[in-house]
Design a protein around this nucleic acid. Structure first.
Lengths: 155, 155
DNA sequence: TGGATATAAATCGTGTCCGATATAATCGGA
DNA sequence: TCCGATTATATCGGACACGATTTATATCCA
């Protein structure tokens, strides 16, 4: 009758939580990429930041942050490291000295050209499902962000 | 002819990367849970650890780590904090002093009974798709882990 | 013009992740 | 029994993630 205090796991088992599924899938991605990225001296986050940088030159830290869902507090140290490694350049915008413009260097672009990513697509084991899962996860993320922010941001 | 050095983004746009979708969905989950968890004084990881603990009493750190895909280096500080907060108990196993047995306290169990989780399911905006996405992401994770570890662990 | 306000990065402290290592307890074999 | 492996946690250092604050620049407007 009254629920037993312990074993009322019901829909609450760890394996049933979508949040946990995403949490652990993210850990799994990091570990799958690690041996590949170690070889070129990048961390997982640094790699993702470089992909975002490959989309356009002279992006501001904020613009990059919008793509990555990160802010300057997280991005600044990452970008400084990528600069030290010689993969990106950081310069204050002469027209507005508050902003920092970030671009890939030739070395950075060469590194991305290695098609690091391709080797991991098959490791997902998703096959034809791949694009569907991807769309679902993106939608999931956007719904969560929308729910969290109360759509305070533009559009 | 030869690919243009820059704008050959092709399938390489950030939004096309499944790894980025999962990475950012995980961030989004953390942010969506934050206001709820702040109210009870838990971090996202601590909450997930407590869910795992709710499945059984007297689990070892290793057993918990297998469920969470984490090891003692990450778990120990988290469990110590949960102990300080009064939500779990940690005791050395008298039969094998190497092991630490971890359990929820009454306070910890009460906290989980609040059905914190339910309020976020709708925020995913996935509807009927929810269980399908979940299964896909779990499969994705397991495939990645399997690929990474080279199935060194017991079957 | 000049001071209040706004904006862009950077800094700081706390809490994960994770590889490498340390500590401690147990087990195995001669 | 005793010493070398093995196992279970714990510790340490580096790198994120993020709220809160700071610094520097730009803008607004009386």
């Amino acid at each position: 009758m009254t629920r037993t205090p312990k074993a009322d796991a019901k829909g609450r088992k760890l394996s049933n939580f979508l949040c946990f599924a995403v949490y652990s899938a993210n850990l799994a991605f990091g570990r799958a990429y690690k041996p590949i990225l170690d070889a070129v001296g990048l961390t997982y986050t640094q790699y993702i930041a470089m992909i975002a940088l490959s989309e356009a030159d002279d992006q501001t830290v904020s613009a990059l942050g919008e793509k990555l869902f990160l802010e300057s507090n997280t991005l600044t140290p990452i970008l400084k490291k990528l600069e030290q490694s010689g993969y990106i350049s950081r310069t204050r915008d002469p027209a507005d000295e508050r902003q920092v413009r970030v671009s890939l260097t030739a070395a950075g672009r060469r590194l991305l050209d290695k098609e690091i990513n391709a080797s991991l697509v098959e490791a997902t084991g998703l096959g034809d499902e791949f694009p569907i899962v991807q769309k679902s996860v993106v939608r999931l993320r956007d719904n969560l962000l929308h729910h969290t922010r109360g759509d305070s941001k533009k559009g």
